Simulated assay, not measured.
Amino acid sequence: MTLVREWSAIIAAWPLREDARAAAQARQLIRGALTALGLQSDLVDDAVLMVSELVGNAVLYGDAPFELVLRPEQDELHVEVLDGGTINPVMRVAGPEEEHGRGLAIVCEVSGARCGCRHDVPFPTRDGVYGKSVWFAIPRRGQIAVPCFSGDSS
């Protein structure tokens, strides 16, 4: 994990595995970080669900490398899943028998449509690497004390 000194820009950034185990890794990381920041358990659970959906999509449809980033904004925390791909994610309507196709709709619904996609985003833990960021926001309920860290920690 990389914790960045300029925490007003990034709280934490984690490189993720480049296989199907990335979603489990990301769920554990975001749960730990948001719990440590004092977010309410319902918000943490929502964020874990949305991270799982976005990382799953990145692994299935995006390109490596993959990264999970937590950023503070005005009254929200933005959670981003970066991948090396350039193709925009597409929300679609899945039929009742389909196993895939609901992830972005779930993220849109759970986040209250506070989600999106950006391109040419630098990977915080990889110098000179840029990719696509698919993100969602969750509200900050109450004050969150964000520590100031520097350097790498595992």
Rank of each mutant, 00 (worst) to 15 (best):
G101P: 04
R102D: 07
R102Q: 04
R102S: 03
G103E: 01
G103K: 01
G103T: 01
L104H: 02
I106A: 04
I106T: 08
I106N: 00
I106K: 02
I106Y: 03
V107H: 00
V107Y: 00
V107D: 00
C108V: 13
V110Y: 09
G112A: 12
G112E: 15
A113G: 10
A113P: 04
A113I: 13
A113E: 09
R114N: 13
G116E: 14
G116C: 15
G116V: 13
C117G: 07
R118G: 11
H119G: 13
H119W: 12
H119T: 13
D120V: 10
D120R: 10
V121S: 02
V121F: 02
P122H: 05
P122Q: 06
F123S: 00
F123R: 01
T125R: 00
R126N: 03
D127Y: 06
D127W: 08
G128W: 05
G128I: 08
G128C: 11
V129D: 03
Y130T: 06
Y130G: 08
G131F: 00
G131W: 02
K132M: 05
S133W: 05
S133G: 10
S133R: 10
V134C: 07
V134K: 00
W135I: 04
F136K: 07
F136C: 11
I138D: 14
I138C: 13
P139L: 09
R141W: 07
G142K: 10
G142W: 10
G142T: 10
Q143H: 05
Q143A: 09
I144H: 05
A145E: 09
A145R: 09
V146M: 06
V146I: 15
P147S: 14
P147G: 11
C148P: 06
C148W: 13
C148L: 14
C148M: 14
C148S: 11
F149H: 10
S150G: 09
G151V: 00
